[in-house]
Simulated assay, not measured.
Amino acid sequence: MDTNRKLTDKTGKKPPTPSHKYSFRLNEEQNIRFNELLCKAGLEHNRSRFIVKRIFEEEFVVIKRDPSKVQFVARLNDFYFQFQKLANNCAPVKVI
């Protein structure tokens, strides 16, 4: 027997992974609440992942970006690089 078989079928494609699809209906109040939960979680773009994580009580982390903090970090990095350039320019002077 050949134990080193490839994981492809005769056409060279991988066999499809088994998946199951479910659908459900929400009334107007439930839909509003569902959309609020999506917004709080920050997963508006991926509803199916949000639903699965909520059903199986898996933890999901929401990372919110604050534009002012991003600007602060960028300026701090620029400041750090200026010191690094100064150190690199002074290194040849120390050798002499």
Rank of each mutant, 00 (worst) to 15 (best):
M1R: 06
D2V: 03
T3S: 14
R5N: 14
K6T: 04
L7R: 13
D9T: 05
K10H: 09
G12H: 03
K13V: 03
K13N: 14
K14R: 13
K14V: 02
P15R: 10
T17E: 14
T17Y: 11
S19R: 14
S19D: 10
S19I: 09
H20K: 11
K21S: 07
Y22Q: 10
Y22D: 05
S23C: 05
L26G: 02
L26F: 04
N27D: 15
E29P: 00
I32A: 12
R33A: 13
F34V: 01
F34Q: 01
N35F: 01
N35Y: 02
L38Y: 01
K40T: 05
K40Q: 10
K40R: 13
A41T: 00
G42R: 01
G42C: 03
L43A: 06
E44S: 12
H45Q: 13
N46A: 09
S48Y: 03
S48W: 02
R49Y: 07
F50W: 03
I51S: 00
V52Q: 15
R54N: 07
I55Q: 08
E57K: 08
E58F: 09
E59H: 02
F60A: 09
V61S: 09
I63V: 12
K64I: 05
R65M: 04
D66T: 02
D66Y: 05
P67K: 05
S68P: 02
K69T: 01
V70D: 11
V70T: 13
Q71A: 10
F72N: 13
A74E: 15
N77L: 12
F79I: 07
F81I: 04
Q82I: 01
Q84D: 14
Q84Y: 12
K85H: 11
K85P: 00
L86C: 11
N89F: 08
N89C: 05
P92D: 11
V95I: 07
V95R: 12
I96E: 09
